[in-house]
């Protein structure tokens, strides 16, 4: 028996059943996989933080190689000694699992003067302390974010950048090693003055030999993304100024 699929009643019934079935499938997928996805996101965050402080599996000529997922939890607790949050009054409080805070929300809250908790971490590698700060900003198309690791002289020990949707082959290259490596050793403070690091076109230093010029060489064809990275470093780090000042003074 052929069904008359042209009737309005049939169309409505079909649509209703379709919505319920599809909704059920998607909901069960989403809730069934949620724990795994959350765990993956947590591991990825740990990998990124460790990467910024120089704990990674890079070799001389390799690309970006994180600590493998199955080992990252142990490495994270080994290298990240302390986790803190900085509130609106410039007060620092220890907080467990601070790295899981949503940096985007906290930075937005901080800027608008609402109650905020900006996370940061103190890591220790080979007896050397590093202060790891999350960053969040915008590139050409969408969000960019990352972590920067500073030593007590405000010299960059390492960075990690990531992006949501920068142009493949251009802005997306901020997460490639040759770009991130350029930041290592750059100063972010000139005496007591906060300078940040600017992604600069035409700084005539493509091999990045001058580490005290507060500049790294830009990516060709990715001006806006590069400007976004400069702005992100400046804005994010300046939020942490009250804390960084105490680090410098010690």
């Amino acid at each position: 028996m052929a069904i008359n699929t042209d009737k309005n009643g049939y169309t409505v019934i079909f649509a209703s059943i379709m919505v319920v079935v599809v909704g059920a499938i998607l909901a069960s997928f989403a809730s069934g996989l949620r724990p795994r996805i959350d765990e993956n996101e947590r591991f990825a965050k740990q990998q990124n933080i460790l990467y910024a402080m120089g704990v990674n599996e890079n070799t001389e000529d390799s690309g970006v190689n994180f600590i493998p997922t199955n080992a990252v939890e142990a490495e994270f607790s080994k290298y990240i000694k302390e986790q803190y949050v900085l509130d609106n009054n410039g007060e620092v409080k220890p907080k467990e699992e601070a790295y899981l805070l949503d940096v985007k929300k906290q930075i937005a809250a901080m800027k608008s003067g609402k109650d905020a908790e900006l996370p940061f971490f103190i890591g220790e590698k080979d007896g050397k302390k590093s202060y790891i700060l999350p960053m969040y900003g915008k590139g050409l198309w969408d969000a960019i974010w990352g972590f920067v690791s500073l030593d007590e002289n405000m010299v960059i020990q390492g960075v990690y950048f990531d992006h949501k949707g920068e142009t493949a082959g251009l802005g997306a290259n901020i997460k490639l090693r040759y770009f991130m490596d350029d930041f290592n050793g750059e100063y972010v403070m000139d005496g007591n003055q906060f300078k940040g690091v600017t992604v600069a076109k035409g700084n005539n230093d493509p091999l990045n030999e001058n580490k005290q010029d507060y500049e790294v060489d830009a990516l060709a064809g990715a001006t806006i993304t590069g400007n976004g990275v400069s702005a992100m470093i400046k804005e994010s780090l300046s939020l942490y100024k009250p804390y960084l000042q105490t680090v410098i003074n010690n």
């Binding site: 379709m18 599809v22 499938i25 997928f29 996989l33 795994r36 996805i37 993956n40 996101e41 997922t69």
Partner: peptide
Amino acid sequence: LVVVATLVIMVDQVLKAFAY
């Protein structure tokens, strides 16, 4: 459209869970 969208969301979720 619903069929494509459902499949795409499923692919997306499975990748996020098993091939992050």
